[in-house]
Design a protein around this nucleic acid. Structure first.
Length: 636
RNA sequence: GCUGUUGUAGCUUAGUGGUAAAGCACUUGCAUGGUAAGCAAGAGAUCGAGGUUUCGAUUACCUCCAACAGCACCA
């Protein structure tokens, strides 16, 4: 007797070996029809696998959360077969599922183009119609190696060779087509009638190593219902409209041009936004006992040699010459300069923690292919600060930093923050007990304020562990913004010290930390998260005052003047245009408040308020309107 | 940096082996308009840069530059 425990706790008994499909069938026909795979003792397996022991199972159907992953994996195999049928000399590499879809990497002499997508999709549909069973087989290493070597599938051969010698190799066949794959897969290529679409093609290095050959990666997506596919495509189309580069142009915030790639030309409105963010940060940092400084951009090579940047970071530095051909570099970071300030005069333990902040203008020669609007630039300003403290202070400083960061992110409307905790890498400076202390301090601090975080084992810098705070853009791409890095090395290299309670010279620890990260990147993310509809306190233009006809021009001007005197960012539109035209234009520019005045408003000293996103008009007295707007526009 | 795609007026796009089209924006008239595009006229582009083929290249080919997607990189 085989006892199979179902998710509801009930036990089904079978007198002989039973497959997942049979279990499903014995429960109901409709379940069997909608089943994809089976979870046996919490591990996903093929439905065809025979069970001859007691276990608990869960049938994974179309409706299960795991379903998408399964069909996408199926679809990846189908796509690979399709590509090899159309381009027979193509070699296959790997084809995993990813968020919202899957990809497969190919090596082919022909380069695939978007024109081939339709062909491949058509072929995929044919393969799905053939409805070949996914047949799972276990091969020994020799057989597998021989098979793939004979087929000249060099990538599969390399994968097999990299696997443990005693590991079983699973092979999946669909008709004639064979792939090395862990599985699981559903019953057959056409078992589930899912919807799919090839999205894009791009290069990708074999095994993610830039020294290896670049393969062609075809990205695609698959969904169980056609409507989900349509929704997904719509979601992407909508997201693209929120692209900060597009908005930057439409809202006249900034531009970039060939003569200074990776650097931003901030326009008046964009610079207003930038300045407000900066003023807000200044206020918050001031409240948190940071002292702001300003250090040079161009610094002699000598300091970079002492700090270690010349050796480790030179590739990314812009190097120029000073007098007598003396090499100088544009600073890529502010830390060495801050240490110079710390070192002026003698510091006492009473001065610690010493929090030194700077809106530090940095330049890094980033690889051309990595540049991306405001998100990845070559010239940027960090809301940087270095906290010089004792080892014992790492914990409390981290905790208050995390609190401050969360508060600030919330003010900007970011409530979901991904935190990565990166601990000691293999190559590192400093002894293990120091690392223990630093890692514990960081981890305890995030735990103390109850923030969820992911671990990034070995991802720390050579000089210390770190916390990274990651935000995502409208397409879900991740951008590291805030960071907190513990550093034992730089104070040593640059000989920073303080005098402790007993009068001896001691090295401080340095915490490198940024909240927004780079002003540019953060504003880019902010633009995408708001879609350009900035909250009132951030909007470059808060109020547009517009008249209806000539007779109300003077009244409009008077209101404009009042707004300006109240420090509201107001503009006036008294162009000789129709009201509809002006409303449309200012709405498209995403100005939060339009004040409309005509004959009636003028007569009663009222204004008509129209808020972005609403077609309602609110007629209130001028005084009340301005008071209300002023109250709503304060910086948090 | 690597692979692929793209590059036409300020913006968005059409198009062609014989120096180019449209909408919006802009300028000028007319219209004096009550909450998302009033009417008309005008001006505006050596088609990313350089080269090759050609009688002739914005169009084909090559090189470069930049942008976009992805990969790699992000101390």
């Amino acid at each position: 007797m085989i006892n199979i425990t179902l998710p509801d706790g009930s036990i089904k008994k079978y007198s002989e070996v039973v497959s997942g499909l049979k279990i499903a069938e014995s429960i109901s026909q409709s379940l069997a029809k909608n089943s994809l795979v089976i979870k046996i003792n919490n591990k996903l397996q093929d439905l065809s696998i025979n069970i001859d022991y007691d276990c608990s199972v869960e049938i994974i159907t179309k409706k299960s959360p795991e379903a998408l992953d399964i069909i996408r994996h199926d679809a990846a195999h189908v796509m690979a077969e399709a590509v090899q049928e159309i381009f027979p000399k193509t070699k296959v590499a790997i084809g995993p599922t990813i968020k919202d879809g899957f990809y497969y990497d190919f090596d082919s002499d022909v380069s695939f183009s978007p024109d081939d997508f339709k062909k491949i999709e058509k072929k995929m549909s044919q393969i799905i119609k053939r409805n070949n069973k996914f047949v799972r087989e276990i091969w020994d290493r020799k057989k597998a190696l021989k098979f793939f070597e004979d087929k000249n599938e060099i990538y599969k051969v390399e994968i097999i060779k990299s696997l443990n010698e005693d590991e079983d190799l699973t092979i999946y066949k669909q008709g004639e087509w064979v792939d090395l794959c862990r599985g699981p897969h559903s019953i057959s290529t056409g078992f589930i009638n899912y919807s799919f679409k090839i999205m894009k093609i791009a290069g990708a290095y074999w095994r993610g190593n830039s020294k290896n050959k670049m393969l062609q990666r075809i990205y695609a997506t698959a969904w169980i219902k056609e409507n989900d596919l349509i929704d997904y495509i719509n979601r992407i189309t909508e997201a693209e409209k929120r692209d900060h580069r597009k908005l930057g142009n439409e809202l006249e915030l900034f531009h970039i041009q060939e003569e200074s790639i990776g650097n931003i030309f901030w326009h008046p409105k964009g610079w207003t936004l930038y300045r407000i963010c900066q003023e807000y940060m200044r206020k918050k940092l001031n409240q948190s006992n940071y002292k702001e400084v300003r250090t040079p951009s161009l610094i002699d090579k000598r300091l970079w040699e002492e700090s270690g940047h010349w050796e480790k970071f030179r590739e990314n530095m812009f190097i120029t010459q000073g007098e007598d051909e003396k090499p100088m570099a544009l600073k890529p970071m502010n830390c060495p300069a801050h240490v110079q300030i710390f070192k002026q005069g003698i510091k006492s333990y009473r001065d610690l923690p010493y929090r030194m902040s700077e809106f530090g203008s940095c330049h890094r020669n980033e690889p051309s292919g990595s540049l991306h609007g405001l998100m990845r630039v070559r010239g940027f300003t960090q809301d940087d600060a270095h906290i010089f403290c004792t080892k014992d202070q790492i914990n409390s400083e981290t905790e208050s930093f995390c609190k401050l960061l969360t508060e600030i992110y919330n003010d900007f409307g970011f409530t979901k923050i991904n935190i990565r905790f990166a601990d000691r890498p293999e190559k590192r400076a400093g002894d293990d007990s120091t690392w223990d202390q630093a890692e514990n301090a960081l981890e305890n601090a995030i735990k103390a304020i109850d923030l969820p975080y992911q671990k990034d084992p070995g991802g720390g810098a050579f000089y210390g562990p770190k916390l990274d705070f990651v935000l995502t853009d409208t397409l879900g791409r991740e951008w590291q913004c805030g960071t907190l890095q513990v550093d034992f090395v730089l104070p040593e290299r640059l000989d920073a010290s303080y005098i402790d309670e007993r009068g001896s010279k001691v090295r401080p620890v340095m915490l490198h930390r940024a909240i927004l990260g780079s002003m540019e990147r953060f504003i880019g993310v902010l633009m995408e998260s708001t879609g350009g509809k900035f909250p009132l306190w951030l909007a470059p233009i808060q109020i547009m005052i517009t008249n209806i006809s000539e007779e109300s021009i003077e009244y409009a001007k008077k209101i404009h003047e009042i707004c300006i005197n109240r420090n509201l960012r107001a503009e006036i539109d008294i162009r000789n245009e129709q009201l509809n035209y002006k409303i449309r234009e200012h709405s498209n520019k995403k100005i939060p408040i339009i004040l409309v005045v005509g004959r009636n408003e003028m007569k009663d000293q009222n204004v008509s308020i129209r808020r972005l996103g609403s077609e309602k008009q609110e007629i209130v007295t001028l005084k009340k309107a301005i008071d209300e707007i002023e109250n709503a526009s304060y910086m948090p």
